[in-house]
């Protein structure tokens, strides 16, 4: 078999794939629901649920960020058509995560919540990540992309890199002592962002290679072509 494998699903196959993916993305929630029902979430189920929803938010952020590199490596351009759903699931899980905090941790004590956001660095950074994610979720449909314009939409959605970094920092700062897991997420994120930086640098050099040495000397700004 030759790599990359050429695979292009038909419209119907893609729809089926999307439905399947949608159901798979709900599994973490179903597992929590089942665990709660059958009393399998340990001595502190509320903490377990809050942590688990946070972990799955982070997982979905990283999975969403994996789509582009995976597409580049495999040549499966249709993967891009699954990305919005994955990103929206990150938003779905962060909404639940936030709800457990506001409700089950703070019981809607808004004074305490505001104080918490201002005083606790890990909550400040987590809340910032959430706030930054809202416009991305709000502009995720086709109508909004058309309205904003593809180029500006893409610029806006690059904030996902910052959001993911904030999310990892949020995790790192909340851990008491053992940072093994946050460190693992940090490495994965660094890999995902590093690949992008590397490819961008390669692209820049390729473009530069086609420019006359004279132009380089004059310090002309070389724009990087917008990627499709």
């Amino acid at each position: 078999m030759v790599w990359p494998v050429v695979y292009n699903p038909t419209q119907r196959q893609l729809s089926a794939l999307k439905t399947l993916l949608f159901l798979v993305c709900l599994l973490p929630l179903a597992r929590l629901g089942w665990g709660l029902w059958s009393d399998q979430l340990g001595a502190n189920p509320i903490e377990f649920i809050t942590r688990s929803l946070g972990t799955w938010t982070l997982n979905f952020l990283l999975i969403t960020l994996t789509v582009s590199p995976l597409r580049k490596l495999t040549g499966w351009h249709w993967l891009l058509r699954l990305r919005r759903m994955l990103g929206l699931f990150a938003f779905f899980y962060v909404m639940l995560h936030l709800t457990t905090y506001l409700w089950l941790d703070q019981f809607f004590d808004w004074t305490a919540i505001v104080k918490d956001i201002l005083k606790r660095p890990f909550i400040t950074v987590g809340m910032s990540a959430f706030v930054l994610l809202v416009p991305l979720a709000a502009t995720s449909n086709h109508a909004m992309i058309r309205r904003i314009g593809g180029r500006r939409w893409q610029q806006l959605h690059r904030s996902i890199y910052v959001i993911a970094i904030f999310a990892v920092v949020h995790y790192w700062w909340l851990v008491k002592k053992d940072v093994t897991l946050p460190a693992l997420y940090a490495v994965l994120l660094a890999l995902l962002l590093g690949m992008r930086a590397l490819w961008r640098e390669q692209e820049r050099r390729q473009q530069l290679a086609h420019v006359s040495p004279l132009a380089k000397k004059r310090g002309k700004v070389i724009p990087i072509a917008a990627r499709q």
């Binding site: 502190n44 509320i46 089950l104 941790d105 104080k115 918490d116 606790r120 660095p121 890990f122 700062w173």
Partner: peptide, 19 residues
């Protein structure tokens, strides 16, 4: 006196819902 990263004003008694 708060822990620098979280408030110590309330606690969850294991087995209870409301803090």
């Amino acid at each position: 006196v708060d822990h620098p990263r979280w408030s110590q004003a309330t606690e969850r008694r294991i087995g209870e819902f409301i803090k």
